[in-house]
């Protein structure tokens, strides 16, 4: 497998997890005061998860730059090449902006070590982490759109990434809460899990609607390529992706319509059952989500073969 594919996949995954950790603290974690032990454990876990993922995202972003520079220059990336890429290419400018955003996220985590998992202290970090994820759109294919559609395509892609960050990213911390609630079976963790699941459920609807709306707009811009998507290897990968997403949405729908009401209705047995079911489904959704991100990483390198023109011999070397 191409190294760039692996790096891109890890980078997107890490960016989603970092954004999700912040978004979870800000939007999903219940506002009501929680037991100290629960609050502290959650806060510690979120900081650690955000710290690791943001660090991995920054490291892979540096490797990404080196790989892109090598491809652009068709040579090993020496200092001169790196300087040219940073100063004179679109990717270079986006790279510096995103690097700064990633550093801001890490600095925020460092300086707010004592922060609780409550909403207020994380507003700045949340904005930085979400912008870090959304600005990935400027390093992707949308930036190659021509004319007036470029701005629209970029906006739509950024919203698409935001939706992914809110949904998939916040799913990981939710798994942690559910796992604790299932294992501990003590009421503070169950209370927290119940409230967090309810909040996540609302956030999930908004995130899916964002993903759907951005997808619909994007489709209306690109209808002429539908045939190519069905006939090529590229198209088959996209089909696999659609199937994966359909599974996730089905699981999420089951959670929302069956398990969450059961959890809210209360009763010790019902709570235990629904927490166990939610945990299992959330883990499954995470695995499916990881597979989707891997496909995104792969697709980033491809262009449908049908796009090749009659204009002489031409091919892609990357």
């Amino acid at each position: 497998m191409d190294l760039i594919v692996a790096v891109r996949t890890i980078h997107i995954g890490a960016s989603v997890i970092a954004a999700g950790a912040f978004a979870f603290g800000f939007l999903v974690w219940p506002r009501e005061p929680q037991a100290d032990e629960v609050r502290e454990a959650m806060s510690r876990w979120l900081r650690r998860s955000a710290g690791w993922s943001a660090s991995i995202a920054l490291l892979t972003w540096i490797v990404w730059l080196a790989l892109i520079a090598a491809t652009m220059a068709a040579a090993s990336p020496n200092l001169e090449v790196l300087k040219t890429v940073l100063a004179r290419t679109n990717f270079g400018h986006v790279w510096m902006l995103r690097f700064a955003l990633g550093l801001l996220v890490l600095i925020e985590l460092r300086t707010r070590r004592s922060a609780t998992a409550s909403a207020a202290p994380h507003a700045f970090g949340t904005v930085a982490a979400l912008l870090f994820l959304m600005s990935l759109a400027w390093a992707g294919h949308a930036v190659g759109s021509q004319g007036a559609l470029r701005a629209l395509h970029l906006t739509v892609d950024a919203l698409h990434l935001l939706g992914a960050g809110l949904w998939l990213g916040a799913l990981l911390p939710l798994c942690f809460v559910l796992q604790r609630a299932r294992a501990a079976a003590t009421s503070p963790w169950l209370t927290a899990a119940s409230a967090a699941t309810t909040n996540f459920s609302s956030l999930g609807v908004i995130a899916v609607l964002t993903i759907a709306a951005s997808g619909v707009v994007n489709t209306s811009l690109q209808v002429d390529t539908l045939a190519a998507l069905v006939q090529t290897q590229y198209g088959q990968l996209v089909s696999a992706k659609i199937a994966l997403l359909a599974l996730i949405v089905a699981l999420a729908g089951y959670n929302r319509l069956r398990l969450v009401p059961k959890l809210q209705a209360g009763g010790a047995d019902a709570e235990r059952d629904s927490v166990a079911g939610l945990y299992r489904n959330a883990l499954l959704e995470l695995v499916l989500g990881a597979a989707i991100i891997a496909i995104v990483g792969l697709l980033g390198n491809m262009a449908p073969a049908s796009h090749l023109h009659e204009e002489g011999m031409q091919h892609m070397s990357h």
Partner: peptide
């Protein structure tokens, strides 16, 4: 919605390279 989303998100990549 899911179908539209993913066709949408990656339909754009048809223009992914400068030919």
């Amino acid at each position: 919605a899911a179908v539209l989303v993913f066709l949408g998100a990656f339909g754009g990549q048809a223009q992914a390279h400068a030919f």
